[in-house]
Amino acid sequence: MFKMLADGTWDTLYMVLISTLLGYLIGLPLGTLLTVTDADGIRPNKVLYKILDIIINITRSIPFLILLILIMPFTKAIVGKSYGTTATIVPLTVAAAPLIARMVESSLKEVDKGVIEAAFSMGAGYFTIIWKVLVTEARTSLLVGVTIALGTILGYSAMAGVIGGGGLGDIAIRYGYYRYETGIMIVTVAVLVILMQILQWVGMLLSRQIDKRRKS
């Protein structure tokens, strides 16, 4: 049983970390694009903003459990099968990307307009402003966002257990729900709780460390 839980924990971490990473590969540029093209952004573009806005809203309003099933053909096309940990990464990433885009957007929008203007007044171009000002100055908030994203995706990954997604959620459903082995279910949930706590703790610790605005 210990082996099973250890494997489950590993599977969960594998799914969550890879999906979050892939989610950021899509969500970070997407969120940046949202910030830049918004009406008060550095390069407003109504049409582009609206299109991205709608796509993100649509993806975000589909309940994850439905999304899991809905994109099964897509998952199968990419991974070759629709169950198991690697396959679960696909719907997790699809669910994570728009969420991450929104969080990146709200983080970047926190950056003081005056500071951005100062950068412009020094002749900085869009690329410099995005990387050296927006992303650098929002890093604390961005890291808090990573923590939230990891937590949310951890929750989603457990849900994927319903369709044989692998990981701790899968174990909790198979043993706790189908076989009435409440003990295993409780232990599994406890491991999930601990994982979440660690994620949150490490995330907050790091974000405090890189926050240069805080009074020491």
Partner: peptide
Amino acid sequence: TRIREKVGMVFQSYELFPHK
């Protein structure tokens, strides 16, 4: 941008980059 490099501006509320 070319002009801005030659025109320095100092603002009322400093606008220094807080994380640098």
